[in-house]
Nucleic acid binder design. Structure first.
Lengths: 206, 206, 206, 206
DNA sequence: TATGAATGAGCTTTCATTCAT
DNA sequence: AATGAATGAAAGCTCATTCAT
């Protein structure tokens, strides 16, 4: 697939409806039938729209998928930022727990679509994934800055990097490993990893 | 792609040559041109072999890729097991460092192919990836058992799971985040995460 | 060949043109070049249409042939029914002669296509052939009912079966046996077989 | 398929075994899996022989099938001739009955193979079928000559032609029409058709 | 602007046939 | 003579994309 050639941003209300219908149909087909079945013709049909319209709005097939992925990533980033605002002053154990729970919940919620994208359109998802990771690191770093005197790591970039990576890795593993996501004590253990890294010991139950 | 139908195991010498040539060509095309360009005809041509031969040995397209992935995973598992034997008695800081370095080195070595697979044929790689993860957890668990009295976690399954996930996550992040893999202090930081999780503090400098 | 999967019924005018062109091209290629040469690409080319269009209307290769055969059978059945209406009250010798002549004429007319189908796509023609035979028996039986008091056979189902089979067999033989179709007295002899079976003697010349 | 290029007639005992094994495997595959699955490689494998050997004996694929069909036709012709010798002096009702019964029995016996050939390799079967029909007419004609003074038809060629065609037609119909072959009274009715044609009336019961 | 019929390059797969061993 | 690995033309079919209406 060549990089997208042209797209028309929807300006009228009717156009916005069409645009959204296509993205929604894309998500639906992707999840229900897989990337291989997600042809532009199929997507258009499911969206109740002609192929021609799809090409009017998205330029080419890649454009449809990147738009969908961008939308998902934007939501994820918005969630992160919302949480960051609410948690900036929270004590570490609380913030960590909130972060871990949020990631697990997100994964749980659109697990099917994340899997579909990461397993079959991963190359299209890379830029979005990078954006999410970068924003995650920025948010985490900002938190670490605000709590710098309470934690061991001094290189905050490195610490943010490590934190985002380790949590992501454990969460991914949990969903990748049949049944692991439901383990009792999983979220707690992930928090323990985080706290021991940042504090050198488990949080005092204070 | 349907699951593979039938394959003929090579018996004559030249048959083995053909078989290997096809797998090698697959890796090469995958890395150099991407999954989309890796048609069976292209692979056969690069292998210097006819398409017919490809289908004689692999049954269908999927079979070629899964054979390649299996081969890569087998190597990875062999490496793990070799390391496990050598490191079982090693003190934690040494073992951790070896594990982390090995993972980073592996990633470095066939980065291109891992990326190609995980970004474009991830669905075919799942079984192999699971095998590697499961074996990793088994190896790590065996190490933890042998050192159970020196570490904090008591649920060794959960600990092995967390360790494999966190390290994988940080290593992946490092290669995913442009430039991060080369950061000085990266391996050290990953080890620090591991040690603080297992010991509650950094390892005493002997 | 698998049973047909899906087809789009033509709605626009040009679509109908395309549909018909494909069927006509199929007949032409089948007759002129044989079933083996009648690939979907060849048919499409002869029809002056792209392969894609062929698959839009017929779903798969088998679909093209069965549509053609169905069309031929429908014509044949329509002819039968037309004749049945006109001949129901006719005396046996006249009706028999008309039936035999009609079969010979039909065979003569699209001999090439019947041969092509029966010799190279017979398995696809079976359902159509069955339909034609069943309808033939029905029509003949109706005639026999109307003339039941004038004929020897009392089991009309069996008689209809025998009549349709015997006439078909002799007509087929005539066209199968080089030159036999042109024999003088052939039609007359077939009628004689029919009349002697039904009456026990040749028809009185009134 | 091009007409056969060369074949080596088996001269040694071992060669004859191979030759027969291939023909038998062809029949088996044809009946059990259909013409489409009857590739030369498959046939060779079922015959327990290498493809190379198949090509040594039969020159090309068509050669295998025509050899098989020839063999079947030869058997059929031998049967006909055997019957002719035994029946030449028999009275008409007896001879007719024997002929009809023999045809029905033959059909019954290798119904599957006849169907396989006539439905999927009819073009290869034409020459053989012609030979059988021609021989049938010859045999019937010889019988008619010997009984010329007892029958109505005077053009014996035409009569033989009609007889062979009509009986074949009714027998074929019987097997083509689901269930008809098992009808009670079927053979009798076919004989009745024959006798009325030849005598103008049913045979006097001696 | 929206439609959907039409396009055709290109993919996966099969199989008759060859020929070095 | 026998083997079976290798060949590669060609088949059926899909789908991203275009464009006349």
């Amino acid at each position: 697939m060549a990089p997208e050639k042209a797209r028309r941003r929807p300006v009228q209300a009717r156009a916005q409806v069409t645009y959204d219908a296509i993205l929604q149909a894309t998500a639906q087909v992707l999840v229900a039938e897989g990337f291989d079945k997600a042809s532009t013709n199929r997507i258009a049909k499911v969206a109740g729209v002609s192929v021609g319209s799809l090409y009017q709005y998205f330029g080419n097939k890649e454009g449809v998928f990147t738009a969908l992925i961008d939308q998902v990533c934007d939501e994820q980033i918005a969630l992160l930022q919302g949480m960051a605002g609410a948690m900036l002053a929270a004590p570490l154990p609380v913030a960590a727990r909130a972060y871990v729970e949020a990631l697990l919940a997100t994964h749980e919620r659109d697990r099917a679509m994340h899997e579909a994208i990461s397993q079959q359109a991963a190359h299209l998802g890379l830029p979005g994934l990078r954006r999410v990771q970068a924003e995650s690191r920025r948010v985490v770093r900002r938190y670490l800055e605000a709590h710098a005197d309470a934690i061991l790591p001094t290189n905050l970039d490195l610490a943010a990097f490590a934190l985002v990576g380790m949590v992501q890795g454990m969460v991914d593993s949990a969903f990748f490993c049949e049944g692991a996501a439901a383990w009792p004590g999983l979220a707690e253990e992930i928090c323990r990893v985080v706290l021991r890294y940042l504090l050198g010991h488990d949080a005092a139950p204070a």
